[in-house]
């Protein structure tokens, strides 16, 4: 069977695609920041920008995806006035751990199971957030939020992953 194609073509076209994806991820990220999440749990959100990340994971090379995620986190917190704040450190730790799981998983998962990779991405994102929070808050007590974040993360990850999966399969 043919693998999902991951264009390795011209670096200029790859760069254009990445900047477009970054712009989209940023817009989603910033709009989502304006809409408060209904549950008062710090760090909990739908993470709609993850749709773009999952798309990129399945369509771009690893280096490109890493660039995309880093750009979204740095520019997103710069625009949101949270540059170098704890929130940015949590995003960074979560985002990197999430990629460390989703990038290898794309080799195992076929185009009907992209949502599954997204769930693991979300779980790893929450794990990274909590580890960073333990260090920033200087107390292990924040681990109390971990199970709540995981429940929300699994649901949100499945939702954003399924959305990305539908887009990826339509744009074949």
């Amino acid at each position: 069977m043919a693998q999902r194609k991951r264009e390795s073509g011209g670096s200029a076209s790859e760069l254009t695609r990445l900047s477009l994806l970054t712009a989209m991820a940023l817009i989603i990220f910033i709009v989502e920041q304006q809409v408060p999440f209904p549950l008062p749990i710090p760090g909990a959100k739908l993470g709609l920008a993850n749709i773009i990340t999952v798309y990129a994971v399945n369509r771009c090379r690893s280096g490109g995806v890493l660039l995309l995620v880093l750009a979204r986190i740095f520019l997103g917190s710069l625009f949101g006035g949270a540059f170098l704040s704890p929130a940015m450190i949590f995003s960074l730790a979560g985002g990197l751990l999430c990629l460390a799981g989703m990038l290898p998983l794309r080799k195992i998962l076929d185009e009907k199971h992209i949502w599954l990779g997204s769930i693991f991405g979300a779980v790893l994102h929450n794990t990274g957030q909590i580890i960073a929070a333990v260090f920033v808050m200087k107390t292990a007590a924040v681990i109390g939020y971990y199970p709540f974040l995981l429940v929300i993360g699994c649901i949100a990850g499945a939702f954003t992953g399924l959305t990305a999966q539908i887009i990826i399969n339509r744009l074949k």
């Binding site: 599954l116 199970p147 995981l150 429940v151 699994c154």
Partner: peptide, 16 residues
Amino acid sequence: QTALMIAAAAIFAAAA
């Protein structure tokens, strides 16, 4: 893939 699906379900159930 099946193993991953079971793992995801287990994580969700445990967290809940």
